[in-house]
Write a protein that binds this DNA or RNA. Structure first.
Length: 181
DNA sequence: CGGGTTTGACCGGCGC
DNA sequence: GCGCCGGTCAAACCCG
């Protein structure tokens, strides 16, 4: 139904980082940004007229005893849903890119897409494919400026970035070789 | 055939 | 209590 993913240009690997990215991401150095209030986005006051607290408030977890319930025998639906680690860190930053998903070195699997209100572009939900890593991220294109992509990371990877490592390994070996002399 | 994407349904929180 | 809304699940589908 949507067709905004078609006219993407072949410059998919070129992007412009508009806000400081999390330190664990091997991204380009950030560029100055002035007219984007991503701080309000980080602080959870993203709404213009109705500033609701964006459900990332601390505390209010206390749900450690309700997983694996059998409400219906015939419906094996939704064993454990939404383990909300509300205290996990979240990072949001913006890039200017023609491609929605930027290559940050990690492997992501898309698990949902939703149209949020007051936005003309759907929001995509990704999850890290590493076995024990449950880092999630949301990718959304701004309806104001359709060339800007907002990426929100939820959590911190507990494993090295494999693409970064395989890029760094030859360099490290060469450094080890050079340091002998 | 295995892994990723699509897509509609479902769930829970929140406001009224 | 009800409905809206955002986040997630999972079956179907797609693709190399």
């Amino acid at each position: 139904m949507d067709e905004q993913t078609h006219q993407l240009q072949p410059q998919n690997s070129s992007y412009e980082l508009l806000t400081p990215a999390p330190s664990f991401l091997p991204l380009h150095p950030q560029l100055p940004v002035d007219d984007i209030d991503w701080i309000s986005l980080l602080s959870g006051q993203v709404g213009d007229q109705n500033n609701r607290p964006m459900m990332m408030g601390s505390g209010s977890d206390g749900k450690g005893a309700d997983q694996e319930k059998e409400k219906g025998n015939d419906k094996p639906r939704k064993s454990s849903r939404m383990m909300k680690r509300s205290s996990r860190p979240r990072f949001a930053f913006q890039t200017r890119s023609a491609d929605d998903i930027l290559d940050d070195g990690y492997r992501w699997r898309k698990y949902g897409q939703k149209a949020v209100k007051n936005t003309s572009f759907p929001r995509s939900y990704y999850r890290c494919t590493y076995h024990t890593c449950n880092v999630k991220k949301q990718v959304q294109r701004l309806s104001k400026d359709t060339s800007i992509v907002v990426t929100t990371y939820d959590g911190i990877h507990n494993h090295p970035c494999e693409k970064l490592m395989e890029t760094l390994t030859p360099l490290l070996k060469q450094m080890q070789f050079l340091v002998r002399f």
